[in-house]
Amino acid sequence: MTERPISDLSLVWHQIRYQNRIFWRTPVAAFFTIVFPLMFLVIFTTVFGNDRISEIGVTFGQYYASAMAVFGAVSATYTNLAVQTAIARDDGILKRVRGTPLPPWIYIAGRVGSAVYIAAIAVVVMLAFGSVAYGVRIFGESLPSLIVTFVIGVACFAALGLLVAALAPSSDATPVLANATLLPLAFISGIFFISGPNEPAALRAIAGLFPLRPFGLAFHDGFDPLEVAARGGWLGQFHWPELAVMMLWMVGAAVLATRVFTWEPRVGEREGGRRRRSLAAR
């Protein structure tokens, strides 16, 4: 028996540590979040060559590394957080946590904190690999803007990920729901395809209403030497309208998620459901 005061902050810290440990022990999640975007980068630069893109003035590697960094960050927060949270809910893990003194917000903060940490790793790994393999350049003036864009971007997609987990009727449906929303958006948001001047203005406008294109654009511009030069000092690098769009989505998703989020398993506890069925069959 040890009696000791526990601060909420240290609880958050330990929750993050354990969520990280679980993440790294789940090879599939680690692969899709860290390795998958790297593979895309290699494939795209191999297929298209690492030439200068005439329309936007940067090399393919420079463009794709920033786009894939955003994709990795979004996978870590939106897709992973949604899927892992829904599985934990349907396994009954959330329900058990709810029966302990751990405040719910600390548990959620642990999951979000871990997802953000892994998103940061995905971005750093992508940029490090890009700079070594494809000569991707990083500009000091745009770094503050990139960091703020990252923080608001992952916060926005973490809130959306939790909302998807809350709305999904079962954990099986969660990856479908997450990918069916993310992938089409990625195609029209300049993540997989370069949005040049030939892109229909209407499509661009529609994509701009969703949070992915603003995230990608603000990130991409920070790596575009012409854009960085044109915007002047570090304060000029900030993409205020794009940040505003992401913050609106973040607040909306967070408010809605807190209303619809449940801690009870849906469609029966997964293992328990199987066990009951097999007992009934006996």
């Binding site: 354990y18 440990r21 679980i22 022990r25 789940t26 934990a88 396994d91 009954g92 893990i93 329900k95 058990r96 029966g99 302990t100 003194p101 405040p103 506890e269 293992e271 328990g272 066990r275």
Partner: peptide, 20 residues
Amino acid sequence: RDFRERIGIVLQTTAIEREL
């Protein structure tokens, strides 16, 4: 929180993080 400090619950189905 005060209440949950003093109770322990063993639910009907096992629900522990598999990778720990």
